[in-house]
Every structure is written in structure tokens, then in C-alpha cells.
Design a protein around this nucleic acid. Structure first.
Lengths: 220, 220
DNA sequence: CGTCGCATTGGAGCGGCGATCCAATGGGGG
DNA sequence: CCCCCATTGGATCGCCGCTCCAATGCGACG
């Protein structure tokens, strides 16, 4: 009675990771503090650290969960190119839905979950008849491209929550800034303003995948 | 006499940025604290904040310096593909020498300096006769790839300074871990161990650039 | 059916961070 | 020559991740 009551239902690593994911999804990356976790779980620091070694351990586990989910839910197609597109798009959609995953991958790009992704890509490149010597470089290239997009997405999400404007307003604002650039110094950027305003991140991501696939085909 | 003596030579934004760059280069990303800056500059917090709005402002300025330097020192070649390779390699080398730039770009991917990079790529794609509609996607794809590599580099550098082993030992360690993976579950990764140990990041980066260039050529 | 060991819990407190605030200062313009 | 204000240095704040430890009650065991 002297001290606060002790919870009867048991805490668990899974519950902590799940709660962390909820906080990250609803309030953004830097809303995940241990304080916020203790409040939400109605517990103390010690209980959390008994199940989790680190904050980075926590983030890594949450990220692994998301990526593992993507990989296991990706259907295989007869055409390896189509399977690779689905795999990449699945990752894109997951990172689009959970932008903090992109930021975490930029900190820890070689998590076990990404190793599975890497393995999948390697096999698909094999099916696409990419020569063995080129496969290593090709797989690394694709992973790096996806990683770059992930980081980009995470950064965009950060700016969107900072100012609470929606995506359209954000793009219009960026486009307006681009339009004000000196056309003689930035002819390309200036000419691209319309496409910036109207483009779809997902489609552009897929366009990049297709450029990569076309480039791979040239290696055959 | 009552308070400490006041410096006679004047502080400046440039000096602060330069000192920050020195700390970042010699001791890594998270060695840059305001405390470390005050010690190195023999000054106080107030003096620094009088010239710099933020820590992020400081990092952004330091990053812009590095990237601007790269862009201005890249020679143009008659062949646009070669110029593009040089541009990309210049950026790679700069990020290799200053890995914290990669981490900073992952936080703020649309700094003015990167806009110049984007503009250069756009012009080169024009010179490569890439159709106007495809240029936007192609440029974005290349930027994303370079960004992904930058992030990867920054992460590798972090792990290298954490354990003070050199690069060869680090790669051998990673290769050993890969080699211990279940060959039936990870046939591709398992088969790639040798290339992981022997590969050159710079060459692999360039191989990726060439894959994308080949893919872009197919758009013509 | 006790009882007791120990895995689990909650929270006070530590050191370090970025950032703010303000009194002291001294070089340069009138 | 003097005084004003741009510039300086550091005390201080609030928040962070993390450590430490006393209290607790569940379940194994006699």
C-alpha cells in the first residue's frame, strides 16, 4: 500500500515493441521516448529495460517486425521481374505507412530482416540470368536504391508532421520555391516544377525499379 | 578580472563551421556536441548561438560546404556519361572522406547543395537525349541511389569507429557471419561471401551508376 | 497447503545533451 | 575621448537515455 500497486498482467518484449510501434506510427519518430513508453504502458523504466536492452534494440526489433511482415506477404509471380517489382513495392508501401522504418534503416542498414530481402533479390537476379559475377553488384545497387528512397520518405514525413500541412500543400510549397529559382542557373529544376507538383512517389519509385531492371538486362 | 577574460580575435560563423567539421572528421558524428565546440573554441554557448541558429543549422552548413566543394571541382568531359560518372564519384569520395555528410543528407535530403547536384544530373540527362518526360524520374532515381550509398557509408563508418578494428577486419567479420548462415535458407548470401570480403565500395558504387545509365539509355 | 527464492516491477536519480538567458565587456563610430 | 551596443561566456533549464535498487508477488518445491 505504501508504494504504488504492481501490475498483475505481465509485461513482455512483444507488448513493448507493439506499443512502441503505435507511438511511432501515430506521433512520429521523435515522439518515442522512454518516458512516453512508461506512461502508455503504465509502468516504470526498470520494467522496460528488463525486457529490452536498449532504445536502439527496441527500434531495431520494431523495424524487423515490419520488414519481416512485408517479405512474408509478398506473392511470387512466374515472371521474376514482376516478383521483384512486387517485393520492392511491398517494401515501399510499408515504409510509406511507417516512415520511421526508413530512418531506422538508415541507422542500421544490415539488420537480419534486410538480409532476407537481399537474399530474395539475389535469387531473382539469378532467375533473370544475371551473370554470377555481376549479381553481387546488382543486388547491392538495388538495395542501395531502395534505401535511398526509404530515407527520402522518412525525411518527407518528418517535414510533414513538423508543419501540419498535408502532402499537396507541401508539394505546392516546394514547387513554388523551385519556380522562383533563377531559370538561367537552374534550367532543369525550373522546367521540372510541374512534374514535381504532379508526381506520385510510388510511381516514381517503380520507374526507378524499371530503370534498374532495364540496366540489368543490358548485363546479360 | 572578476570574470574570465574575453577573447580579442573575433569568432565567426565560418570559424565555427570549420571547427565543427574538424571535430566531425576526427572523432565522428556524435562527437560533435556544443560542449566540445565551446572547449575547442575556448568560448561559451552564447557566443556560438550568436552566429548559428541551431545545431542542425550548423550541420547543414558544414554539409553544404562539402558538397559545394565537390560540385565546383568536378571537371566536365565531352562524354556526358563520363561527366556524370565523375560527378557521382566525386560525391562518393567526399562522403567516403566525411561519412557524417551521408548521415546528415539522410536527415535533410533537400539542401540547396543537393539541388545543384540534381540540376547537374538533369542537364547531363538532357545531353544523353533522355526524353523530357522521363528525365524527372531518371534524375530522381539517380539521386536516390547516391543517397542510399551515402547512408550506407555513414553507417559503416559508425560501426568502424565503434569497434576500432580497421575495414579489412570488419569485412572479414561480416563475411564470417554470412558464411555461418544456413546455406539452404540463404544460398545467395552464402555464395556471395567471397565477393563481400574482396569487394571495393567505390567500384561497386560505379557499377551501380553504370547499371542505371544502361537502364536510362533504354528509355531513349 | 504454506513459504520462500527470485524473476519481475516501478521510480528516484545520474550524467549529458541542446538550448535559453543575461550580465559583463571592450572595440569602433560620433 | 567616451559611450553604446554587438559580442561574449557561462549559469541554468528541461528533457533525454539509462542505472540502480528496494519492493513485490508468482510459482516451484517440500
Amino acid at each position: 500500500m505504501a508504494k504504488a500497486q504492481r501490475r498483475t498482467d505481465s509485461l513482455s518484449r512483444e507488448l513493448i515493441i507493439q506499443t512502441a510501434t503505435e507511438i511511432l506510427d501515430s506521433d512520429g519518430e521523435n515522439a518515442l521516448t522512454l518516458r512516453a513508453l512508461t506512461v502508455r504502458l503504465k509502468t516504470g523504466y526498470g520494467a522496460i529495460y528488463h525486457h529490452v536492452t536498449d532504445k536502439s534494440d527496441l527500434l531495431a526489433a520494431a523495424t524487423d517486425d515490419i520488414i519481416t511482415g512485408v517479405l512474408s506477404h509478398t506473392a511470387t509471380d512466374a515472371d521474376p521481374r514482376e516478383t521483384l517489382r512486387r517485393l520492392a513495392l511491398g517494401l515501399f508501401d510499408a515504409i510509406d505507412a511507417h516512415p520511421w522504418v526508413g530512418a531506422e534503416l538508415s541507422r542500421q542498414p544490415w539488420r537480419p530482416a534486410l538480409l532476407d530481402f537481399y537474399e530474395s533479390i539475389g535469387r531473382l537476379l539469378d532467375a533473370l540470368a544475371v551473370p554470377e559475377k555481376a549479381r553481387f553488384d546488382a543486388a547491392g545497387t538495388l538495395v542501395n536504391y531502395v534505401l535511398g528512397v526509404a530515407v527520402q520518405n522518412a525525411a518527407n514525413a518528418r517535414h510533414l508532421t513538423a508543419q501540419d500541412a498535408d502532402r499537396a500543400a507541401f508539394l505546392n510549397n516546394a514547387a513554388a520555391q523551385w519556380a522562383q529559382l533563377d531559370p538561367s542557373r537552374y534550367p532543369f529544376v525550373h522546367a521540372t516544377v510541374t512534374q514535381l507538383r504532379e508526381h506520385d512517389d510510388r510511381e516514381q519509385f517503380l520507374a526507378g525499379i524499371d530503370i534498374f531492371l532495364a540496366g540489368i538486362a543490358a548485363l546479360r
